[in-house]
Nucleic acid binder design. Sequence first.
DNA 1: TTGTAGGTTGGTTGCTTAAACAAACTAACG
DNA 2: CGTTAGTTTGTTTAAGCAACCAACCTACAA
Lengths: 388, 388
Amino acid sequence: MEKESIGRTQLRNRNLKLVLQQIINNPGTSRVAISHELNLNKSTISSLYNSLAEDHFIEELGEGASSNVGGRKPIMARLNKKYGYTITFDLGYRQVHAVANYLNSEVIDHQEINTKGQPIEVMLQYCSDFVKEMQGEVVSNQGLLGICFSIHGIINQNKIVNSPWIEMNDTDIVEQFKETFDVPVILENEANLSAIYERDFNAGRYYHNSITFSIHRGIGAGIILGKRLFRGKQGEAGEIGRSLTLLGPNTAGQSVESFCSEEAIINRVKQLKHDDTIDRQAVVDLYRSKDHEVMRILLQSCSVIAGLMYNVVTTLNPDAIFINSELLAELPDLLTEIKDNYQDIAQEELPIALTKNTKFATLLGGCSLITHYVLGMMDYELHFEEAN
Amino acid sequence: MEKESIGRTQLRNRNLKLVLQQIINNPGTSRVAISHELNLNKSTISSLYNSLAEDHFIEELGEGASSNVGGRKPIMARLNKKYGYTITFDLGYRQVHAVANYLNSEVIDHQEINTKGQPIEVMLQYCSDFVKEMQGEVVSNQGLLGICFSIHGIINQNKIVNSPWIEMNDTDIVEQFKETFDVPVILENEANLSAIYERDFNAGRYYHNSITFSIHRGIGAGIILGKRLFRGKQGEAGEIGRSLTLLGPNTAGQSVESFCSEEAIINRVKQLKHDDTIDRQAVVDLYRSKDHEVMRILLQSCSVIAGLMYNVVTTLNPDAIFINSELLAELPDLLTEIKDNYQDIAQEELPIALTKNTKFATLLGGCSLITHYVLGMMDYELHFEEAN
DNA sequence: TTGTAGGTTGGTTGCTTAAACAAACTAACG
DNA sequence: CGTTAGTTTGTTTAAGCAACCAACCTACAA
């Protein structure tokens, strides 16, 4: 909403970025195509294009197909992925997951190490090592451009406000990595990154408003409205796990999270089975072996999730819902259950889909976010391809 | 998000609007002040300013106060309110409310007539008459600029999708009035207009994200995110009345609306008292006379509303909440009740305020909306003053 | 007290600059 | 030859700049 004034230089800058956006989102486009798309004069585009080319943002692919009535063939161009690269870490409860990507989001390398029970310092040491490794290996024009951390907690103003699963010991991740590597460092909530992934990769492209439910240890949601991530006043938007399951006089209602997060479910099964070694895999196995009690607990949870979903959809009327959950990925039956429950309540069609490749989604979301940032294109819609 | 390309003309146009925005939002500003605010050169501003002046958008107020160290006095300017005027109607269940406003939102005239039980055609005939009356009376530069209708129902693409209280008989309001008066005609949901009112007048100015609960016959919410009205995929965002009060296995949970809308409350009191003549005023009187059962019902409703509020706040993390309700306006005790309940659940501070002047809020919201529209400034933040 | 010089701010004017634009051109095709 | 892609060269236009005038203030001297 707050429009900024535009002088001559900002005009040029903006148009430069619009051209770059075209090149990123339509790999194998040409100058004329861009000119047509942006309603700017051919010569203007040529000028802008050449500026970008000088800065090594462009990779030319030779000639494309000419039209069927003759005429010169266009020179196809796409983003020069080797302009530079970014690194994204997911600081999980059980492990650290790391990935390095070229500017077009192509994965250069990824690693995962188990850090369960380890303090944050050890996790960050691993991250630091990974960055150094990449700096030694990856060849690119500008080198490392930026780093993103996926945090399972609440982020505000690029600071961790709340980290329920990992004790942070007042560690200032941003300061530390910015200092060491001299690149921008961004922290973002894991559910938000999942949402960004859905927006910028594959499916979500055509949806303006989507909500990504992230159901792991806790329950959160990433909210995309008007193609923009909505973070709320203090970055707490989407903390739907705290929603009440019961509105009414006895306001001491249970929160959704305390009832059907993975954590809660595992605990309930633990109690039920008097077995403290139960973990997610055990729950999955029990469900698959059609254990009656476990099935009941999970189906109950699905019903609650469906209700929560209905309430959120009712307030936001989004185009689609995504769910990012390892548990559901392993037990797709439950997705059907949720969908059916939702249908019963809503009587309305709404695309509900599982996020494919649960863990990578977050990382790629982070890759997209930091890429947007380093290009100075936070408010530009960028699409990326996910390799298969 | 979708950025449009900017050529020379659009640049000029945009800067023109930015200058106009400054003049609207800071009545009694000067060229230098604008130049400073927009970071554009003095001479550039002068040029833009003069263009606007030629188009009669500007009213000069003579000289302002000079600074205490000497120097020429600035020439103060504000929006020429008599550039033109807009008209807004509220098509209520019981009455039609009409208002005409100058471009600065100043009320020229307003009327209200009782139309309870009358068909839509009669209501619109009255509206039509009002417009003609204004066209005869109001003197302004450009005359009537646009018309806005506040609809107690769902609007999508400027069409009525759902009108629970008034039978529309397939009447195409937009077509009809656009045809007759040859100006833009906009329909918008009443709760959304309330939200716009809170955003553009008085209080809400400083909030980026706010939610306005409109509790009348039904329950709806207007959602302002990033200073922008959020309408959802099909304009159904904010239909929170449909939220479930209970998430869980028996998904046939009650909707909030069926439980504590004004309609529902009155019906419950009717049943309880075996008196079919009960209306809002009767409920108010009964509460004031401390009728036990009525108090119970209302307090119960407050508790549900507070829970609903908590859930919505949990998903959106807004800066503030507004409530627009005639019932609450008459019984401010209930607001306290809601606030207390909310506090109990949330344990967090959040500004919760009643909309003053319940009925006018919607109309002024409509005025703001249509004014934005006719100025071609839908995406510009405009502030208006409400006369006292 | 008055008058004038010096400083300050508001706004205009005329010229410069740079980016978009337009049209004519070359290149490369069917 | 017609068509399409891209470049070149020159034009237009809106922003930027610098010098200016206008209108105010204060200080201070006659």
